[in-house]
Structure formats: C-alpha cells, structure tokens
Simulated assay, not measured.
Amino acid sequence: MPDGFDAPNRPGAANPATSSDRFEARSYTVQPGDTLSGIAGRYGSSVGAIAQANGISNPNLIQVGQRLNIPGASGPSAPATGSRSYTVQPGDTLSGIAGRYGTSVGAIAQANGISNPNLIQVGQRLNIPGASGPSAPAPAPASRSYTVQPGDTLSGIAARYGTSVGAIAQANGISNPNFIQVGQRLSIPGGSAPSTPSGPVTGPGPVRGPSEPGTAGGVSVQQLRAIMPNLSEARANELLPHLNSAMAEAGINTPRRQAAFLAQLAHESGQFRYMEEIASGAAYEGRADLGNTQPGDGVRFKGRGPIQLTGRANYRAAGRALGIDLENNPTRAADPDVGFRTAAWYWNNRNLNSYADAGNFDAITYRVNGGYNGKASRDAYYARALQVLGG
C-alpha cells in the first residue's frame, strides 16, 4: 500500500434500458472525469445497458478515450449551447458545478486545463462548455466562525458545515490541512448550520459513538454483519459505536460512501479480525521513507488499525490531525476508538469520498492498495454493501 499503509499478510447485471427500442444507438468517447453512471444519465440510458452493449464487465472501470456505443440514447440531456463563465465560490466542487450546469466534470476539466478535478480555487474563473444554465443559482452564504476542539479534523469540520477542506484552508491561510490547533479560531466560508450540533469528539481517550448502534446516519449491527458475515454479533456490538463515530466525523455519511469504506475495511482487516499487522514490523526497520529513523522504529510503528497505519511519520501525521499523541503511544492505533479514526483520516486525506460518490470503486482500491491486489474480494464486499445499504 502507498504512503506506508500496508495490509496484513492475507490474500488480498444490470437490466438494459427498457426504452432502447425507441432510439437509435449513439457513440460517445470517454472524457477525463467521466463515469458510466454520468454518461448514462446524460443520454437517458442505463449503466447496465451501456455495459452490456460494450462488453464491460466492471462498470466502475472505463478508460479516457474509450469509444462507447450508447444504446437507447435519447441525446445528451444538456446539449452544448455555447460556453458560460463561472467564478468558483467557497465550498464549490467541480462535480457540484457540473451538476448545476448540466455538463460533466471531464468537460469542464478539459476546457480549463485542469489536471486534478479535485483541486479548484476560490475565485478561479471557469469556462463551462455546453452549459444549460445553473439549476440553482443561489448566492454563497455568509461565513461562520468555529473554534477547534480536541479531536477535530478539518475534513470533519468541513463536513459538519457543508463546505470543503480547501475552502476553509484558503480562508484561514492553512498550508497543511492535516495540522490544526485546539483553540484555533476558524472562519468557515459558505458554511451552513452544523449538521451535528452535539459536542466535539474527544481524544485520546475513548470516543463516544452514537447513543445506539445504527443511529445518527450510521449502520446497524444487522447491516454490518450482513456485509461481513464472519463477524460475530458480540464483536459487531463492541466495534460499531467507534466505527459509526469515525464515519460521521469523516463525512462518510451516504450509502455509497459507507459501502465503499466498509468494503475496503472488510478486505484489509479480514472482517475486523486483524487490527494489528501479523508480522513483527522488523522489515520496516531503517525505512526513512516511513520516517523510521530511530532504532526499533520498525517494530514500534508496525501496521495497526483496519487500514494499517505504518511508520513513525504516518503515526505522527495521523496523531496531529486527530489530536492524539500516537507517536509516543503507537499501540493506541490498534484500539477501535482510535483505529477507525485513523482509517477515516486516511480516507479523507486521499479524498476518497469523491470517488465513492462517483461510484469509482476501482480508483479507491488503487489508492488504498497501490494496485489491485484482492480486487475480487474487495468488489464482492462492495457489491454486498451496496445491496445491504441501498447505495
């Protein structure tokens, strides 16, 4: 796995569109940022129909430049009507802008030379090709103020106020979004009322979960065990409050996000059987790329947590982001109240919610694993989780 995250030593039909007989097939070339579901939506077809017509076995994996036959296409829902101009506001995302103007992330990125669709700047002027006019041209709300509490992360604050990490970082001159200080006063641009008015999560002690499993937007014991059938009911009841709390903190709060997150964790941890790497960690000794510069660092900072945190530098970064001194207390990363939070930190640090929202599970697998090891297992968990959670 990249960036010092290593897994334990374990092996890693849709129906065609019913209206396809009413329209002739069309041809479409995949653009950067496209998803099969987005293409299907634009052309009034279905993911299953397009996948079947093009022999695609994994609808989450399409290639830029790939030529697709679109059966049952009624024509794109937002035909090009000339470009419009738009200035990025606090809290904006490229996918949100594309949705408002009836175009695609790939089209906007291509028109503006954007290599990373997840990185746009407040005040940036965008050319919107094929724009049909904004569906909800509401002005950005006024800024709010927030004081950082113990256990806060910038991603958690952003999720609570309905804005983005980038917008808050830019508004407050924060160069490292993973490093904020307790007591720091933040301006929250474009912030709505907080979605969870309860008090902040406290750490490094035990983290309170929801009042009962499955509440506050989390998953239930029954759902968790349906996704991970080898997980005992007693173990599920023990872990669930910490899992739900971490997901809430990180904005993993929709069925698609939760399904993707739980599928990766199920594979990485063997259905929560492994919260610490089986090997001793001696193989990491002297790994400067992991920050292991002191004698004994390899064993001391071995992989821990459901997505395994590995190396002194990663323990330090996660600890700073979560307000927990993991560098001096590394075994805490194997405890459920901390381990699920480090997994959620890793998830948000790589912006994996955006890929979950787009249904691009293969991209998540690559960013978690550094490749596609255990792909069949991960995909099976994901399909089951989507079915259980209704994603």
Results as ranks from 00 to 15, higher is better:
A385D: 03
I278R: 03
A216H: 08
S115G: 02
G91D: 15
L262R: 08
G191R: 03
T163C: 04
A159P: 02
L36G: 00
P206S: 14
D362K: 15
S192Q: 15
G370N: 10
Q264R: 01
Q31S: 03
A226G: 13
R332T: 02
L322E: 01
S45N: 03
A248F: 12
I120S: 03
P255W: 09
A169R: 11
F261G: 00
L265G: 09
A109R: 08
G291F: 06
N15K: 12
P177H: 08
S269V: 02
L265E: 10
P204N: 04
G359Y: 05
G374N: 07
T331E: 15
L243D: 04
A73C: 07
G374D: 02
S27K: 11
P197Y: 14
I188N: 09
S46M: 00
R312S: 12
F261R: 05
F23D: 10
A49L: 02
Q149N: 11
T365I: 14
Y372G: 12
A344Y: 01
Y372H: 15
N329P: 12
G130L: 07
G281T: 05
R185Y: 03
P8N: 00
P150Q: 02
S46H: 08
P150T: 02
P11I: 12
D34C: 01
V105I: 15
I157T: 06
I108W: 09
N15C: 14
G162T: 09
